[in-house]
């Protein structure tokens, strides 16, 4: 564990809590893509099946349980409790266009063909693109609530911090995982546009609106 990874994990945790609190406090999931949240739940479920097989540390296990529980809680809020506020008209990204390529890619490029390893690989690829339905929704409506933009920023910053962690681990432990690194870089690039607008607008107190 190093400071970059810890900060990354904290950003990840903050993102999830911000999203849950936003929905809970406003009693509404307007502007939130349920499809991205389905993909994230799938990411955590397929990556953290190792909870049953591999013990890394108490920190590791507790975080995994929190990510799993919070992702299903988010789905419950969107699709059950506050279903009436779910903006399904704007959440039209076809997730099979992400799921099918991720399945195929994880069968082609993987460290090893064990079920747990394949699920891990799939989860890494899927995580890289899981935010696309949400970004698509923001681009369709042309705006995001400030709190939603904070959520997106924290979620994007988490993987960016992990990249710094991978560079650090490469030099200090000679540890490198090509699959995670390449997917993590792609994941971070997908947020680049958003980061730019967040920094130039939201941090200066303006609303997050896409240029017309």
């Amino acid at each position: 564990m190093n400071i970059f990874r810890l900060l990354g994990d904290i950003c990840h945790l903050v993102a999830i809590i911000v999203l849950l609190l936003k929905i809970w406090k406003t009693r509404s999931c307007a502007g939130i893509s349920g499809k991205s949240q389905i993909l994230f739940a799938l990411v955590y479920t397929t990556r953290y099946v190792d909870l049953f097989f591999t013990y890394v540390s108490l920190y590791n296990s507790v975080m995994k349980v929190i990510f799993l529980a919070s992702s299903y809680a988010t789905l419950y809020l969107i699709y059950v409790k506050f279903k009436a506020t779910y903006d399904f008209n704007h959440d039209t990204f076809r997730i099979e266009f992400l799921l099918i390529p991720c399945v195929i890619l994880s069968l082609l490029i993987t460290h090893d063909y064990s079920p747990v390893e394949l699920l891990w690989t799939f989860s890494i690829y899927l995580e890289a693109v899981a935010i696309l339905p949400q970004l698509f929704m923001v681009s369709k409506t042309g705006e995001a609530e400030t709190i939603t933009s904070h959520y997106l920023f924290a979620l994007g910053a988490y993987r960016a911090l992990y990249i710094v962690n991978w560079i650090y681990r490469y030099y200090t432990e000679s540890f490198i995982d090509g699959i995670a690194v390449v997917a993590g870089i792609i994941q971070t690039i997908l947020y680049a546009d958003f980061f730019y607008l967040y920094i130039t607008k939201v941090l200066k107190g303006k609303d997050f609106k896409l240029p017309a």
Partner: peptide
């Protein structure tokens, strides 16, 4: 090449 600590990240 799967050792148990390889996936020690979240």
């Amino acid at each position: 090449a799967s050792n148990p600590s390889r996936h020690d990240e979240l």
